[in-house]
Structure formats: structure tokens, C-alpha cells
Amino acid sequence: MKEAIRRADTNAEFYTDERCFITEVSNFDGDPAVSIARARVEPGQTTRWHRLRDTVERYFILSGRGRADVGDLGPQNVEPGDVVLIPAGCRQRITCVGGQTLVFLAICSPRFRPEAYEDIDETGG
């Protein structure tokens, strides 16, 4: 990795089949150890059950309220300042439970690669 300042492109947000909006803040070949994405989940929405192969993920809650389902932990309420630790290969999803959009950073190590993503939701579309 080389020293740098990475500027967020707020116009780069996109909607995913996972049912959330993502802005890749830092995810590039020059920093293979970590990626950072800003995720937004709209009120009442739940992301699809999924897991990341060979990738550890952490959610750092910035705003809003949520309910995180991670592995066998059972549903846990989360709020700004909380960190959700998600081991590699662990099933996960998150629900926005308040009237305000849930916003969090998704920090992956090694960096997120699309081929690591596994949709395991059995509820359909």
C-alpha cells in the first residue's frame, strides 16, 4: 500500500440485490488488506441472508437503529457506535427497525471481492 487520501464519491452509490444501498469508500487493488463501504438500509427493510467466504466483516453503525442477525447469536439491537463482528463464512443480515435510515460502514478484511459473496436467503426475491 502507498500513502494516499481517498475521496468518497457520493454519486457512486448503487442499490444491490441484497436490498441495500452501497458506496464503495475504499476498495482497490492497492490496499488488498481492507475495504470500507458505506451501506444504507431503508426503514423496514431487511438485507438478504448472506455470508462472505474467507472474508471477515465488521459493521460500524453510524446512524439509525437496526437488528443484526449474525450466526447463532440471535437478533441483536444495534445503534450508533456499535460494532457488529462477523467471522468469515458466518451467515448475516440486518434490518432497519426505526423510522430513520440505517447507515453503517462495512469493513472487510481482506478487501471485499464479489466472488466472496454467497446469497443464502431462502425467502426468494
Rank of each mutant, 00 (worst) to 15 (best):
H50R: 12
V83L: 11
D29Y: 07
V56H: 13
G81S: 05
V41K: 04
G74N: 11
T55G: 03
F60W: 05
H50A: 07
Q45P: 05
A37H: 12
T47D: 03
V84R: 00
A39V: 15
I36V: 15
A33K: 12
V56I: 15
D69W: 10
E42F: 09
S26G: 06
L62H: 02
F60S: 01
L52M: 10
G71I: 11
S26F: 12
G71W: 13
P80S: 05
T55N: 05
V56W: 11
P80H: 02
R48P: 06
Q45W: 07
A39E: 11
L52N: 01
A39K: 05
V70A: 06
V83P: 01
D69F: 07
V70G: 03
V70S: 03
D82M: 12
G30S: 02
N77S: 08
D82A: 14
L73C: 08
D31K: 07
N27T: 03
R51Q: 11
D29K: 13
R65W: 03
S35M: 05
H50M: 05
S26D: 15
P32Y: 00
V56Q: 14
T47Y: 01
V84C: 00
Y59P: 06
G44W: 02
G71R: 14
S35K: 02
I36N: 04
S26I: 14
R65M: 08
G64E: 05
G66I: 00
